[in-house]
């Protein structure tokens, strides 16, 4: 028994040494873990599973990019795990901004620091919309302003400390009217139905879950944070001169642990950028209605900085 175990140890040692030496020479040498800090089936999961095989195709060596769901604590568990992993390029994670950014601001305990993490790039974005039910007498943003001037406006939210809650507060803060938040919706989808049903007169909702209801005529969008607007009848915040709301998007970014060697970061960045330019991926993304909007590492980092500044401005409001 003992000799076998000793031999096993020796074999393992040889394997470790064998791996260690050439690893510096050519990255990647083994499979890359791509952590999704959410359950299978959500938007983040779909994006990672879509792009993984195309990243494999554009990496210099033939290795697998393995999607791995690490759900828990609203995405903090998976992100914490990768943040603390060895910066060797074999652990990367998809990050939800502003979600990951708002958590520490509202007092949730996190191990990561988004200013120190290594950004690889951005996969996609999603705009926020100010919406009302199509049955509502509020037809335009001007109508809404008139309504808000005389009534406190109620909004749905998933609960204090959530991204939905924080975004609604930022909207209320920037537009400067009296707002009231009704918490307790299970998720964005339930909030969307709440707006259609008329639970609340208005709602701040992400474009991804609202689009089909705008197209079917159940929901009316009054403004979008994206410029130019993706919808024919919804003006952008920029066109309404609401610069603070402009560019307030949900970002799906890819990151690696801090202090990732620049050579490895460059290889990963290039593989992701090439994958997102691959016509086969663009076609696959179009089929499932999940478009990519790529940013490289430097652009992604700059966009994170800009957003952080905005959320910090509303820090006291958010923590309430």
């Amino acid at each position: 028994m003992i000799p076998t175990r000793l031999m096993g140890c020796a074999a393992a040692l040889v394997a470790v040494i064998g791996f260690a030496t050439p690893a510096a020479a050519v990255y990647p040498e083994r499979d890359i873990n791509f952590v999704i800090p959410f359950s299978p089936g959500g938007g983040f999961d779909v994006y990672v599973r879509l792009i993984s095989q195309f990243v494999e195709k554009h990496l210099p060596n033939k290795v697998n990019v393995v999607p791995k769901n690490v759900p828990g604590a609203g995405g903090r568990k998976g992100l914490n795990q990768v943040y603390r992993a060895k910066p060797d390029g074999y652990n990367i994670v998809i990050v939800n901004v502003p979600g990951a950014m708002i958590d520490p601001l509202v007092g949730k305990k996190v191990d990561y620091d988004l200013e120190k993490i290594t950004w690889i790039g951005r996969l996609s974005t999603d705009a926020y919309l100010l919406t009302v039910s199509s049955k509502s007498p509020i037809k335009t943003f001007d109508d809404f302003k008139k309504f808000a001037a005389t009534n406190p406006v109620k909004f749905p939210s998933t609960g204090s400390g959530s991204t939905a809650h924080a975004m609604t507060k930022v909207f209320i803060g920037v537009l400067g009217f009296k707002g009231e938040i009704i918490s307790g919706y299970k998720g964005t989808k339930e909030m969307t139905i709440g707006v259609i049903r008329g639970d609340t007169p208005a709602g701040i909702l992400p474009s991804e879950s609202t689009r089909k209801f705008i197209e079917s005529g159940d929901i009316r969008g009054l403004l979008t944070t994206e410029d130019p607007s993706d919808y024919p009848n919804v003006p952008s915040a920029k066109s309404l001169k609401l610069d603070d709301l402009d560019g307030l998007l949900i970002h799906r970014l890819v990151a690696a642990p801090p202090k990732l060697p620049p050579a490895i970061a460059k290889t990963l960045e290039k593989a992701f950028m090439d994958a997102m330019a691959d016509p086969a991926l663009i076609a696959a993304a179009k089929k499932v209605n999940r478009p990519f909007s790529p940013l490289n590492a430097a652009q992604a980092e700059a966009s994170v900085k800009k957003q952080l500044a905005l959320y910090l401005r509303f820090k006291d409001e958010l923590a309430k």
């Binding site: 089936g41 999961d45 779909v46 599973r49 089909k212 209801f213 197209e215 079917s216 499932v288 209605n289």
Partner: peptide, 9 residues
């Protein structure tokens, strides 16, 4: 959703 069947109206 993964198979392009987006539920909804």
């Amino acid at each position: 959703i993964l198979h392009g069947l987006e539920p909804g109206p």
